[in-house]
Design a protein around this nucleic acid. Structure first.
Ligand SMILES: [Mn+2]
Ligand SMILES: [Mn+2]
Ligand SMILES: [Zn+2]
Ligand SMILES: [Zn+2]
Lengths: 152, 152
DNA sequence: TAGCGTAATGAGAACAGTTTGCAACGAGGG
DNA sequence: CCCTCGTTGCAAACTGTTCTCATTACGCTA
């Protein structure tokens, strides 16, 4: 049997990225990223929602730390920040399978669907090229009414 | 010679649209729309900018009225509201020649360029159709670095 | 053209989302 | 186990926008 001392916890990518930058792993940071990993991709949470999900499951994290951590996770490319308008920006796990998806939003009830479209990506690339800009990111937001909200 | 009383001022589309809705034409409303018409399309102003442009040319309009008027002009489809992120929403004259253009934004200096692309419009239509949503509007924001900002 | 009802304005308070300053805390290298 | 310095919590500050309410004035009517 292996003695306890010989366990060497494999540092997660998150932890090693932090370390290599002089930053520290904290329980708060772990909890925020874990929340997103547990709920999976395709979910778009506001800072307030992240906060209440954590506190209502007994965790103690301040809202300021949520904001600081979300910013950090975006910079580290673990999360993606969305500006869907209406009630604060939202954050989602950056899925490397669907890095460049776009959003269809019901402006009445907030229902949000995702879709991918290469033409959109190419349109962004083309526009940047035409003006000599260096492309960073392009996002298409489609505002609409969902079936439920449109017939009433 | 025609007597002053016989002049019948042709009401502008703005004025007649207002009237037919029980609303009133006011000097403030006239000034805000005129500002946009004078500077032309392709210019994206924040509420604060509209306010300071008017007050610095001697007009007296409150910021609250600017916000109310901008909202009204958007609803009346004289203006278009843009959510380019960073420093408040912006407004532009809704040009009926280029109703569906998109924006390329330098995230460093704020330089903004416009472009059109039918594939983007079609992508929005297709996404709405796929999910049974009723399309309202779709906007592609391309975040990038302009030539000046990218090489320094 | 004066009078009137009511829409619109100005000024500031309120608000929502987010950031920041600072003292206390604690991760983690030595 | 200690010390250092990055991180946290809390409250105050901030930014963009909306709201409240007393006052003004547009424009219909006589
Ligand atoms: Mn998404
Ligand atoms: Mn434009
Ligand atoms: Zn809906
Ligand atoms: Zn630039």
């Amino acid at each position: 049997m292996i003695s306890p001392a010989s366990y060497r916890t494999h540092p997660s990518p998150f932890e090693s990225d932090l370390r290599s930058d002089g930053k520290r792993m904290t329980p708060q940071r772990k909890k925020v990223l874990s929340l997103f990993e547990e709920i999976g991709s395709g979910i778009h949470l506001s800072a307030e929602e992240v906060h209440s999900k954590l506190t209502s499951s007994g965790e103690k994290v301040s809202l300021a730390t949520i904001y600081r951590t979300l910013r950090l996770l975006v910079k580290m490319t673990f999360l993606n920040e969305l500006d869907l308008s209406e009630g604060g920006n939202r954050f989602e796990l950056l899925s490397h399978d669907h890095p460049d998806h776009h959003h269809l939003i019901c402006i009445r009830c907030g229902r949000t669907e995702e879709f991918e479209n290469n033409n959109v990506i190419n349109a962004g690339k083309a526009a940047a090229k035409n003006f000599g800009f260096k492309l960073l990111e392009s996002s298409l937001n489609v505002r609409a009414l969902c079936p439920k909200c449109s017939n009433k």
